[in-house]
């Protein structure tokens, strides 16, 4: 009784829009067919849990499969240099401004907050810079360096938020989110069809 789950099947077909066009053209119809077969089987078993599980898996795959595929396609199309270059530029700026804050306000004026924030900012910037370079040279350590940059950026983000009363958050959020983007991109690269299935 396919009509019993036609809404789910239609929703799934609509969700295929999240997959890259080329992939969808090649496999979309087959994927929809497989999803309907799954629903049909679970329906025949009278398993509501099975239908819910199939739907939940399909929904989760939008995040775990479709979006990484989209990201990967965009990277392949545009080349990876702009993202890595942006990481290098942002990292360099963050390092310079961190050192500047550390030296002028932290060391010369002996203020505690700039000393801590400047040091952490400089370290986070240096890590982001290193992650950008590692990404460019396709180093296996890219993900780890980018993750370290994000981890160091979190206390900077909190510190600046506390001291500047939220006003500094939008800018420092980049310091947290950008390295995380690099982590996602690195994982996406590893999952790309051009990499080995071992990844």
């Amino acid at each position: 009784m396919r009509s019993n789950f036609s809404i789910l099947a239609s929703a799934y077909r609509a969700s295929l829009a999240f997959y890259p066009t080329e992939f969808r053209r090649q496999y979309g119809a087959d994927m929809a067919q497989v999803f309907e077969d799954q629903l049909q089987e679970e329906w025949e078993r009278r398993s509501i849990a099975g239908i819910a599980r199939a739907a939940a898996t399909a929904a989760w795959e939008i995040v775990s499969v479709a979006l990484p595929l989209q990201l990967n396609r965009r990277i392949s199309m545009q080349g990876q240099t702009p993202i890595a270059t942006l990481a290098i530029v942002l990292g360099a700026l963050e390092t310079v401004s961190g050192i500047q804050e550390l030296v002028y306000a932290g060391i010369i004026r002996s203020q505690t907050y700039p000393l801590v924030a400047g040091t952490l900012g400089a370290v986070a910037g240096a890590l982001l810079l290193a992650a950008g370079i590692a990404f460019l040279v396709r180093s296996r350590l890219t993900g780890e360096i980018a993750l370290a940059a994000a981890c160091v950026s979190v206390p900077v983000f909190i510190l600046i938020g506390i001291v500047t009363r939220i006003a500094g958050w939008p800018i420092t959020a980049v310091g947290v989110l950008f390295p995380l983007l690099l982590v996602v991109l690195t994982r996406t690269q590893a999952k790309s069809p051009h990499s080995t299935p071992a990844t």
């Binding site: 087959d30 994927m31 929809a32 999803f35 399909a58 795959e61 939008i62």
Partner: peptide, 11 residues
């Protein structure tokens, strides 16, 4: 799921 299945098949 179908997404994992067909990306793996493609690979």
């Amino acid at each position: 799921g179908p997404g994992t299945l067909y990306t793996t098949i493609q690979r």
